[in-house]
Amino acid sequence: MKRATNIGQAMVLLAGFWAVLAGLTSPGLVAVGLPVAAAVAAWAGLRLWTDDEPPVMSARQWLRFAGYCVRLVRDIVSAAVLVAEKVLDPRMPIDPVLIVHRARFGREVSRVALANSITLTPGTLTVDVDGDRFVVHCLAEGFADDIRDGTFERRIRRVFEEP
């Protein structure tokens, strides 16, 4: 049942992508696009998601996910501004460190989200993920504070782990 929902979600997404690419203006395009979307979704459901539970999301989760995306975009912009400051400063005031952070999640998608969030926030870059161990490169020690005290982790838990 869960797998069927997932294949359904993937199908809607792929059909949307096809609609954007081809523009569903003629019956011929619809006739080609929808079966292909269905076939690819079914294939992905059977072959790509066998190891891990695929991301089934409820309506509330989708809503929180949207909020999370907005916040992420804001973070990316401030991250770029910070890098700009560092680059344009002739003294190049960076003091990079590697830190190790441990975070235990129930789902694969949460780990992906945490790694991506770390990469896109100011001064930090996910270097390696191995189980619950996240190796993070920071341009300076202070940028790791939000990761260390678990702010990110809580945020991601709220989006992906709570029903």
Partner: peptide, 30 residues
């Protein structure tokens, strides 16, 4: 501007990891 900064970072930063910082963030925003 952000593309320019990302490129300057790619040239100026001292090692591969910090260059990746500049490239990923500035290019995304740019």
């Amino acid at each position: 501007f952000f593309f320019l900064v990302g490129t300057l970072g790619l040239i100026r930063f001292p090692d591969f990891y910090s260059r990746t910082h500049g490239a990923t963030k500035c290019d995304t925003v740019g």
